[in-house]
Structures are given as C-alpha cells and as structure tokens.
C-alpha cells in the first residue's frame, strides 16, 4: 500500500494573522511522512550514529543498550542518559529519536527539554505505568508508538501519537512477530473498509479504538499516520519483506550493530528499502554482508520477557 490516500489533507493550522504555528499535527505527522521509505537505526553512541548517517539512515534512535543487550542483561531498562543523547545530536545532522518507558511522562519532558526530534514510547524499556500511556497531546515533541493490531494503533493515535510502528519482538533478530503484527494490521484495515457505517460503531467498541479514527481508516484505507515496521528486522530481505507487506519504512535495532559488518549491512538495508520491489537489487545488496546477528526463537523466550505484551 502506498501513501497515496488523502492523509495529507489536513486543514492548515497556521493562524490567520500571519503568526507562525508550532508543534501542529501537520508538522508532527509531516516529519514522519518525510522519513517514509527510510531506515531508522538504533545507536548507542556518537560513533555508531555517524556510521548510521554515512550508511543512509533517515534518522537514528539513541539508546544506552540495543534491545538484544537489554534482553541479555535483564533488570529495569530506562530512558538513556541525556548527555549521551546530546553527543549523538551533536554528531549527526539527521533527526535523533529517543525512547521513554510506557507511561513515564517525566522522562518524556526531559527528552523534550533537550530537543529530541521524536520520542518513542517503547515497550522495549520497562513500563513505568501498568494502566496508562502518556497523554501525548500535551507535548510539542512528536511521538511514535508500537502496536500489534489496529485497535492498539488507533488508541495510541487517539492519545496523540503521530507515527506508528509494529512492535514485532525487539532484540531477537527474528522477523516473525513483526510480520504477524503487520499482517494483522493490514487485514483489519481491509476488514474496516468492507464495513458499512453502522458496523463501525460496534467494531470500534470491539477493538477499543476511538470511533472517529476507525471512520478515518475506512476513508483512507490505511492508518491516518505513517506506519513503520520494527522488532526483529535483521537482513535486507527482512526489510524488503516488511515493505512489501505495506509498511512505510523500517526500524532496525540490534540487527545492525550486533552483526559482523555494521556499516555494510546498514547500507544494504537502506538500499533494500528503496528497492524493495526489485529482487535483482535485493540480491546484489544481500551479498557478502558477513555474520548476521544471532537470532532467538520466540518460543524460547519466557512469557514475562515478551516485550510486545507490554502496552495496553
């Protein structure tokens, strides 16, 4: 599915008297629209951020440990040290994102204060609130949130998220959960399109989503914001798979810097996302990438360590 639907048809929020308007939905969702067809890479320091930028990342996600290490080390995973994020901001010219714990609006206030370009309210970190997500409408900084299905995506958009990603299962190098979440989402969107207007009320209740957003999904035939794949993408083929399944772009976490030749693999994944429908290019860029990250079977992960179950 391409981004050809009228999702860009939003009323201009600029004020009539000629004053500039900031932090509008157009600007928040618009930055994500500019990231489409790109790869957002997890980095843990300025050096990795530079490698990612040189490889063609359209943005970087600054965090202290990649998900694979969070998984290995255990314990409570929190927002990264602002100093580290600032070093990354100084090192690159592309947008810098950073993660906060689900519901931890003070971590978000801190990230907003240091001027990150996007916040990921992420299930990869240990949730700080077992009932509530952050009220993202209260922030000037835009948010991306994870989802497993349409209801979860629309709840997050209802709370103010201006970009969505699949949850997948981060830090596994196993794309199966991202595929499941993308397929679920797309299938539910097609289902909504087949419904008449009365049915949308009951369906909105069933999936616990705001009714007006379900109506919007029917009108657009897609989510009303940009939707990336995330959680387990490790190869150029994985990235192209997610694009062919209808995602607008790809997050790669542990897959790059836990592999044998990060710079080369990063560049290959960037090429794969642009040329996702061209098997000839995909074959070329998949050659000689060295060791991929070691994968984990989802069935080997204890239930309490399945990140995609976090978030409500």
């Amino acid at each position: 599915m391409s981004f050809q639907t009228p999702a860009n048809l939003v009323a201009p929020a600029a004020t009539a008297n000629g004053a500039a308007a900031k932090s509008t939905f157009v600007l928040k969702a618009g930055l994500a629209q500019n990231l489409k067809g790109g790869v957002i890479m997890d980095v843990i320091n300025a050096e990795q951020a530079r490698i990612a930028e040189e490889a063609g990342a359209c943005a970087v996600m600054a965090l202290e440990r990649v998900p694979a290490d969070i998984r290995k080390n255990g314990g409570v995973a929190r927002m990264s040290d602002p100093q580290m994020i600032k070093e990354i901001q100084a090192a690159v010219t592309i947008p810098v994102m950073a993660k906060v714990r689900i519901g931890h609006f003070v971590e978000a206030q801190i990230l907003e204060a240091i001027g990150v370009d996007y916040i990921d309210e992420s299930e990869v970190l240990t949730p700080a609130d077992d009932m509530h997500h952050i009220d993202k409408t209260k922030f000037g900084v835009p948010y991306v949130c994870g989802c497993k299905n349409l209801g979860e995506a629309l709840r997050r958009i209802g709370e103010g998220a201006s970009m969505i990603r699949t949850k997948g299962e981060a830090g596994t190098g196993n794309v199966v959960e991202a595929v499941r979440h993308a397929r679920t989402l797309m299938s539910e969107i097609r289902h909504v399109q087949s419904m008449d207007e009365q049915e949308l009320y009951a369906f909105a209740k069933e999936i616990r989503a705001p009714h007006h957003l379900v109506v919007e999904v029917k009108r657009l035939g897609r989510l009303p914001v940009v939707n990336f794949a995330a959680g387990g993408v490790a190869t150029p083929a994985d990235a192209a798979l997610m694009m062919q399944l209808g995602m607008d772009g790809v997050f790669v976490g542990s897959g790059i810097f836990k592999s044998g030749d990060p710079a080369k693999r990063a560049r290959a994944i960037v090429q794969a996302v642009t040329n996702y429908n061209n098997p000839k290019v995909l074959a070329e860029v998949s050659e000689n990438l060295g060791e991929a990250m070691v994968g984990i079977n989802i069935s080997d992960i204890p239930d309490s360590e399945i990140y995609s179950k976090r978030g409500w």
Partner: peptide, 11 residues
C-alpha cells in the same frame, strides 16, 4: 531553523 521543535507553519 533548527530541530523539529523549531519546525513551523506560516501563511
């Protein structure tokens, strides 16, 4: 103009 927080809309 700077980072995302400095993005703006204006007629």
């Amino acid at each position: 103009f700077g980072r995302q927080s400095d993005s703006f809309e204006v007629p």
